[in-house]
């Protein structure tokens, strides 16, 4: 297989198990995001792939050949650090040129490539600048140029936007994506921000406590989270305990706020997820959910509402071009159970 394969990688530090059996792959030309909360082992994973940390066990392959014995500097990968790690004693040109000098490019070639890469990241003419005088956004771009310049087989980015403020991040994530696509760069992108991951990645690895919770394309991760952890991490918080019982030919899931037909092979106690963006307003009595509006916030094209059903709050998103009941009034919502409901084995 062409590209990177990570097979059952383990790494622990004393008592702490940072990586407990990680398996996924990155196909050539693809951008894979590693998404997970702080401390889930993402950065250790990058360090292991870069060769800065040695895995306890497991296998790493590039184009089918093992990487384990190859030292960091011969792997031909790029790594962009969260704090950029620009060399403070070198100017912008010397920073970007460093990787090129390591592969023994000639001076004119280096000059051309540095200029080209700085152009690509939107900093043409920055060659002579002292890196200590760069702004956060500029530093980020120089770090990107530095890791892109030597044509790495795989570019790894460790929270590349993590140290920047929100506005800058939203703008830069799109720039970053187009830069990576323009140079047809295979990349592994580590982040704790789901919006960033979904915006940039072809496929996403969701990690938790050193393990892979789900590895799939963004749409499917959002539509079919593989676990309660993934659902919660993505902000899908309408979770309620339920019970599946057989009712004639169909199965029905029974909860404190209603019962709905369900097609699947769960039985007994389950956790039910109701997706926030699959409901619509209905004044009919034929609705699936009724409660009291407790909060409404307008967000442009959609409104986020929190309704109170038998004392339990649920969050939904509705198109904002409707007349919604006011806070404190009754509200009836309908949904197609097949589309809106997903079951998980019961959690504690």
């Amino acid at each position: 297989m062409n590209g990177l394969q990570i097979v059952n990688i383990h790494r622990s530090f004393g008592e702490i198990s940072a990586l407990a059996g990680i398996t996924f792959d990155v196909v050539l030309g693809e951008i894979v995001a590693v998404l997970g909360p702080s401390g889930c082992g993402k950065s250790t994973l990058l360090a292991v792939i870069a060769g800065l940390e040695v895995p306890d066990r497991g296998e790493m392959l590039w184009d089918g050949k093992t990487l384990t014995e190859i030292p960091t500097y011969r792997r031909g990968f790029g790594l962009m650090f969260q704090d950029f790690a620009l060399f403070p004693h070198k100017n912008v040109f010397q920073n970007v040129a460093f990787g090129l000098q390591m592969v023994k490019m000639t001076e004119p070639e280096i000059k051309k490539r540095v200029g080209e890469t700085l152009q690509l990241v939107g900093l043409p003419g920055f060659e002579k600048r002292d890196v200590n005088t760069l702004s956060g956004g500029e530093g980020q771009r120089v770090a990107l140029a530095r890791s892109l310049a030597p044509y790495p087989r795989l570019l790894m980015l460790d929270e590349p936007l993590g140290s920047l403020d929100r506005n800058l991040r939203e703008r830069l994530v799109l720039d970053l994506k187009s830069i990576l696509q323009m140079s047809d760069q295979t990349a592994l992108y580590v982040t704790h921000d789901q919006e960033e991951a979904f915006a940039i990645a072809d496929r996403v690895v969701v990690m938790n406590a050193g393990q892979v919770e789900q590895f799939d394309i963004p749409e499917r991760i959002y539509r079919q989270p593989a676990s309660i952890f993934v659902a919660r991490f993505l902000g899908l918080t309408n979770l309620i305990q339920g019970n599946v019982r057989q009712h004639g030919d169909t199965r029905i899931v029974d909860t404190a706020i209603g019962e709905w037909p369900f097609d699947g092979d769960y039985t007994g106690e389950v956790t039910v997820l109701i997706r926030p963006d699959t409901v619509h307003l209905n004044a009919d009595s034929q609705c699936q959910l009724s409660g009291i509006m407790s909060e409404l916030s307008f967000r442009g094209a959609t409104c986020r509402i929190i309704i109170n059903v038998n004392g339990v709050p649920f969050t939904f998103e509705l198109p904002s071009n409707m007349d919604l009941p006011r806070e404190g009034e009754n509200i009836q919502l309908c949904f197609d159970p097949e589309e809106a409901i997903q079951l998980f084995p019961k959690s504690n």
């Binding site: 870069a50 030292p71 500097y73 390591m102 592969v103 890791s147």
Partner: peptide, 26 residues
């Protein structure tokens, strides 16, 4: 910082080159 050495390593600097280009000048 260790980061700077790691950054150089990832970009293809051997231990000798890391010493020559990062530690020594700084």
């Amino acid at each position: 910082r260790p980061r700077l050495r790691q950054a150089a390593q990832v970009m293809g600097a051997s231990p000798m080159q890391v010493f020559r280009h990062i530690d020594l000048p700084m």
